[in-house]
Amino acid sequence: MSAKLRVGILSFAHLHADGYINNLRMNPLVEFIGFSDDDSARGVEVAHKYGARYFSSHEALIEDRPDAVVVCSENSRHLPLVVMAAHAGIHILCEKPLATTVEDARTMVDICQRAGVVLMTAFPMRFNAPAIEVKRALTDGRVGQIIACTATNQGECPYYHRSWFVDPLLAGGGAMADHIVHAADLLRWYLGSEVTRVYAQSNHILYAREAPEVETGGLVSLDFANGVFATIDCSWSKPPYYPTWGGLMMDVIGGAGVVNLNAFKQMLTVYTASTGRPRWDFWGSDADQWMINEFIAAIIEQRNPTVTGIDGLKAVEIVAAAYRSVASGQPEYVAAG
């Protein structure tokens, strides 16, 4: 066995970074070298909490010559970090959404391609065990030809975890920027087809105080090239006192039957005096772990990961079309190429 892959995390802006530290440490092929963060107070705190090395600048982490990085900055700040890493020949797993504009996403894909580094988009739903079970049922034809899909990726407003999620410049928008991509990517994976046309309606009634500048409710319709139509409810419609953060559900309607997926149903209901209300505690398989494992395996085996930067780009194109539809009030085509 050769030396372990040296992996770092660029930025702790995204709350998923917490989990990724553990996931990286759990992978026997990885040496976790530490993380960088613009916020030095947060950096010191995280370093202490996880016993991890804190690099006071992203450049400093890059100069430590990691083999790979996980980019967890604010959505609009993925691009400079991905470019920096790609130029240094470092493989990249980037948080979703890949970017806040189609142009940024395409630039990231192109630069990584030219640099010959892996660019993987963090779409953990592809590694969610119930979601994989559905993919198998669809692939072996048990459900028949697919007619339509109804998906929801609803959640609480992430404002209370990180305030930048409701900043239109940093997040690229609100609930639509945050919650369309997971379900959209799952649909593309299930259907093996691309979205041609998008219609979306949004509003700003939920969490109006916490998120004054971005949409908090959204309903999106997608037409796929293969004739299947689907909807995604991306609303931040779970209140902060809901038993869990939210969830992802999908109904797939086929000619020979229907599949109902509740990707996070593997929960214990816990009643505790400390919260004063029921809490759902997830006990299913950790999709993030298998996503990290796939990233590492793709680098070692010198192949493309099962989820790529292109997948991230396609999802960003769908989000962009949804915003155009909200602005025009009409269905919008996902621009080609």
Binding site: N203, I205, I253, V258
Partner: peptide, 23 residues
């Protein structure tokens, strides 16, 4: 199988799904 997305005058949005495709 079908769905409709409604926009209400008061700003609310509604997703309605109907099916004659369930077994």
């Amino acid at each position: 199988h079908g769905f409709a997305i409604l926009r209400h005058r008061n700003g609310a949005i509604t997703h309605i799904e109907g099916s004659w495709a369930y077994p």
